[in-house]
Design a protein around this nucleic acid. Structure first.
Ligand SMILES: [Mn+2]
Ligand SMILES: [Mn+2]
Ligand SMILES: [Zn+2]
Ligand SMILES: [Zn+2]
Lengths: 136, 136
DNA sequence: TTCAAAATTTATAATGATTATAAATACATT
DNA sequence: AATGTATTTATAATCATTATAAATTTTGAA
């Protein structure tokens, strides 16, 4: 029937997450907004469409998404976590002037090449900070 | 007179930080404990020797140390900041089993080589997570 | 369909690291 | 000593996140 929502549902089912309405809407938001939103940002954005949604559901949902590796949690030294629908490894740059968090490419084999030997590395985060071209 | 404390005092003076007793003791602790301690860890460790020290002073001092680049603040996805007296660039690995945060070498030119063009990069953090050799 | 167990969501309170504020104390300079 | 400045302290506030338990929805027999 509805191709758009079927795709989102399938993403959830593939990760063994039951596709409730709220989970679908939260995933839809993340797919449409690759801006590394916070839990609160998502909650506020969805409140219009889903007036009954609670903050706890957003937190719960993001926790299960993160656990199942459907999203990647970003902690770039701020006091709130941000969530990234792009799970392929890449670097993050935070502009200390405008606050924007940019993506930048890092070759996967380069990331592998710096891994400390004898450690089993499961997660790799590269966080840079400074001033973005717009603010320079 | 006292070589040990003179060295620590000079480190502070070089960074334009007035060498108060508490600041000296906090810096001494950081120099002797390259374990990426939290503010609370430092506070508790110093409480024995300086019974009157307040948590606020530890926070204030770490903030000024960070601002003057005498220490580096580490936010590896935990809810508390950690502080590193080693400011030369290097990577951090957190063992999700035992919680230890290890250092690992990263060639400075390699870090520079992945910087996004047209961005002014001021800070570079590489955080890996997984299982350390001891826990494997 | 009916009903009970399981999963999800909600409302509410608690947690805990950090920050804000203002008073107290220590330090430096005249 | 007196005065202004810097540091420290005690205390309360902030705020993202987590804990808890009740309410609601979904599921899968019977
Ligand atoms: Mn990203
Ligand atoms: Mn380190
Ligand atoms: Zn910017
Ligand atoms: Zn370990």
């Amino acid at each position: 029937m509805n191709d758009h929502y079927d795709k989102i549902k399938n993403l959830l089912i593939q990760k063994n997450i039951r596709p409730s309405m709220h989970r679908i809407k939260i995933l839809e938001y993340l797919l449409a907004n690759e801006t590394h939103p916070t839990a609160d940002r998502i909650y506020n954005a969805l409140s219009a469409e889903l007036p009954t949604v609670s903050r706890m559901t957003v937190y719960n949902t993001l926790a299960i998404f993160t656990e199942r590796e459907l999203v990647h949690e970003i902690s770039i030294g701020e006091n709130e976590s941000r969530y990234d629908i792009v799970t392929e490894p890449h670097g993050h740059f935070k502009c200390t002037s405008c606050g924007t968090i940019y993506n930048f490419d890092i070759k996967a084999d380069l990331l592998a090449s710096i891994e400390p030997v004898d450690f089993k590395v499961m997660e790799r985060d590269v966080y840079f900070k400074g001033i973005c071209p717009k603010c320079l």
